[in-house]
Design a protein around this nucleic acid. Structure first.
Lengths: 338, 338
DNA sequence: CCGATCACTGCAAGCGTTTGCAGGATGATC
DNA sequence: GATCATCCTGCAAACGCTTGCAGTGATCGG
């Protein structure tokens, strides 16, 4: 192993100077810096992060906690965060809560506490007060993505507005009988997201003077299969059939389109469908949707964190940052049948 | 911060003993161990991983490198690995190569070298000799998932056999005109996987005395959309139409099913479709497929690594481990039309 | 021309564990 | 009862960096 001492010797300076030169401190003469950098490069020296961390207290490492990885949304957030971190020279260590309560406990009682991360990004996670406290105790910055977290800076899309936008799009097309496939109550990993989207949907209807019928709402589990089932039920009643469906996720929306087809209905002639996410398959299915941009959310979370990590000049700033979303109209929505 | 010294004082022993007791060394009396553990728990002590790493040279951390995260297969492998690692008390730090060559270089020339990981798992990555050498130089164990890697223990499914199995299934049903949607040549992130699957397909045909027609092969990009396009072409010729399609991935197979429908064909009456992966959507679409088990691959990779990490009694063992796969017959395959 | 200021650089004390070595008990052996 | 192995435990030296502090010339203002 080539250590800092080797570089120091090779460059004819002290290890202190090497350290400073390589970490970009300002109090090193340009000539020395150049010499040191050359030596380091020549010897293939890379600073030992453990030693550096121990001495400095900085880990150059961020913990990212996700409920699971296996879904497009989460994977995209993580991917975005990873790339942003890499640009900043940070590592990303991944904590996954798929393992159940046991795993969750061990993450919060153990893994996150062993001084390995400078900060934590929690994605779509409803943290308990105790968990937040645990992290605050270390005073490691914590930022959330997706859903307000008490006392924690968080990036969210305004789910209410998203749902309203989608619903208004259908209303503007002339639909008056609009069904909604929302989140299952049990599926509460994501905050009150399902609830918020439902509220947005109802708000839009109300604003247009349309009554929200109870039988036009179906909960599902955010999967294609779940959306399919729900849509089958919604569209199965020939006379009482809604002319449009707003699904709280693209996966469910795609399921709905397939259900419609299987019922002999043509989208969008007989029924319009709109989702949320702009899932990678949405374009393929010609699905209208309200896009959110998970990669960007990951990147933005990192930015916020980097700011938070900077030697605090002022106390921390705004606690809640709204992320953009955008209506994308494709082929799955149109005027209702006459 | 509560350090090891606090625990030592509280338990009335030396820090050395605390360290040994907590790390499960065998030379601590049961009574002492209990006392130490109690003190540690009471004080909420968690060992500082940096200090521990610096002193011991063990990081309790594994680097996992993936080409991208955004695909079901990779996300699943990572998820499996993550959970297995967590059980072993290891962290997982994630390196993503989506960022292009620049990112790739920085990962291999910098991130992996700074003594932060004990070992590396490379998923579906074709490493250059130089990259492998770089890692070997640190003599960090390295295991690959998916595709043989020169001189590196690797977990693979036998792609040739997988393809043969799928094709044989179609042949056994009576099909003689079987098309194949394979991997695009440009899409070479995954080893020669596309090529191997094609060979398996051709081998099965040959073994059954069926000639493989060039026009029955179409390359695509492993997406649903790509599969859709390819299938449209394959099925677009009324007379020359194949009665079955073997797609090299479930995404492409699903695209094929949708293409068939749009052409007015009924699956499996008019055309059978089979894929590879057992993607999470496969069951929903009733897609027959050859399953591989990415989560398990991730877990197994960790096991192999843990073995490799154990103080080498013997030189390393077998270099290539074959992972299981399995034919799953659903509704998308049947006898060909009369 | 002198003291003050400034820009660099080196010295050495940590950072919080782990672990080889040695010492003290205790028990086993003859 | 002496000898020796065995089992625990403590001492203190690493581990490889960072950084406060002090020291050295050089530069500058008066």
């Amino acid at each position: 192993m080539v250590g800092i001492a080797d570089v120091a010797r090779h460059a004819g300076v002290s290890t202190a100077t090497v350290s400073r030169a390589l970490s970009g401190a300002h109090n090193v003469s340009p000539a020395t810096r150049l010499r040191v950098e050359a030596s380091a490069a020549q010897l293939g020296y890379v600073v030992s992060s453990t030693a550096s961390s121990l001495a400095s207290g900085r880990m150059k490492n961020i913990g990212v906690v996700v409920p699971f990885l296996n879904r497009w949304f989460f994977a995209s957030v993580v991917e975005g965060a990873q790339q942003a971190l890499q640009r900043h020279g940070y590592d990303l260590t991944l904590y996954n809560l798929t393992g159940g309560l046991e795993a969750r406990r061990s993450v919060f009682e153990h893994f996150l506490l062993r001084q390995r991360v400078d900060a934590v990004i929690a994605v779509s996670l409803e943290l308990t007060e105790h968990e937040v406290a645990r992290l605050h105790a270390l005073d490691k910055p914590l930022v959330g993505v997706g859903g307000p977290l008490a006392g924690v800076p968080t990036l969210t899309v305004d789910d209410l507005a998203v749902a309203r936008l989608a619903t208004e799009h259908l209303i503007a097309l002339g639909h008056t009988r609009i069904a909604h496939i929302g989140g299952d109550k049990a599926f509460d990993l994501d905050f009150n997201l399902p609830t918020n989207r439902r509220f947005g949907y109802e708000a839009a209807l109300a604003a247009a003077g349309i009554e929200a019928r109870r039988e036009d709402y179906r909960p599902a589990d955010f999967t294609t299969a779940g959306g399919y089932q729900a849509a089958k039920q919604l569209l199965g009643r020939p006379h009482e059939r809604p002319t449009a469906i707003f699904a709280a996720s693209d996966e469910m929306a795609i399921g709905s389109m397939l259900a419609a087809r299987d019922l002999g209905l043509v989208v969008p002639r007989d029924v319009s469908v709109i989702g949320v996410d702009d899932h990678e398959q949405a374009a393929f299915f010609g699905l209208s949707t309200v896009a959110q941009f998970p990669r960007q959310q990951g990147e933005k979370a990192v930015e916020v964190l980097m700011e938070e990590l900077r030697p605090h000049p002022e106390p921390r700033t705004g606690l809640n940052i709204n992320m953009p979303f955008e209506l994308i109209v494709r082929a799955s929505t149109a005027r209702p049948p006459e």
